[in-house]
Design a protein around this nucleic acid. Structure first.
Length: 223
DNA sequence: GAGTCACA
DNA sequence: GGGA
């Protein structure tokens, strides 16, 4: 099984002494893995490039609340919210042009992670970039603006640690709390694809490489 | 309700 | 931290 956290070994090394990945639900539909240190440099420089072209912004929910998480996207589509609702848009409504292309390092990481988790035909066409500053949160929700729920979700954690809330298929279901750290990759799909999930308010701290912030990259097939 | 709030 |  894959390892978690940043490993100075090959991508998704399968035979190390580091803490093993967890089959989060015990059903093989959600796993926690990690990426290799040699992939980190390119990942971070690509992230910088993307958010220079499509800056992070705090979007507004349909009910008019400003989200505490700042977001951007790359890929052929991007997830956006405003007073009219949630949707995927080919245009960055703030920059008024298409979202930046998905960097190769992003795509390869997402496909590798999905494959490692047992989803061998993942075609990510969008990556939502979330920036959490201390106190920022993402309340329990389902990812259901996509069309093909047979395609999994791949979530990459960078920077400060966070508590990932993993619920059930109904809002009221019991949630489990999963600590995610820099380098963790969560993959879920199949019968877990529509499970509620979220992020608890981010605890303040300082990450040696990323600073006082957490980034999350969420890969999906939206079309 | 991808949020906020009161209450525990 | 869980529920309305």
């Amino acid at each position: 099984m894959p390892t978690r956290g940043v490993m100075n070994t090959s991508l998704f090394e399968m035979e190390t002494a580091a803490p093993p990945s967890r089959d989060i639900l015990g059903t093989g539909t959600a796993v926690l893995a990690g990426f290799a240190l040699d992939a980190e440099e390119e990942l971070l420089s690509s992230l910088k490039d993307v958010i220079e072209r499509s800056p992070l912004r705090n979007m507004v929910t349909p009910s008019g609340f400003r989200m505490s998480v700042a977001m951007s996207n790359c890929g052929s589509l991007g997830w956006v919210t405003d007073r009219t609702g949630y949707r995927y848009d080919v245009i960055d409504p703030e920059a008024n042009r298409p979202w930046p292309a998905m960097p190769t390092a992003f795509r390869h990481l997402a496909i590798s992670a999905a494959e490692e988790a047992g989803f061998s035909n993942f075609i990510p066409d969008t990556c939502l970039i979330n920036r959490y500053e201390p106190g920022a949160r993402l309340s329990l929700h389902q990812d259901k603006n996509e069309r093909d729920f047979t395609q999994p979700i791949v979530s990459v954690s960078l920077g400060l640690p966070a508590t990932f809330l993993f619920g059930g298929l109904e809002r009221g279901d019991k949630t489990q709390r999963i600590q995610v750290i820099h380098g963790d990759v969560l993959v879920w799909g199949g019968s877990a694809r529509l499970r509620y999930h979220g992020i608890a308010p981010l605890k303040d701290g300082e990450h040696p490489r990323i600073g006082r912030v957490r980034y999350n990259l969420t890969f999906r097939n939206a079309s």
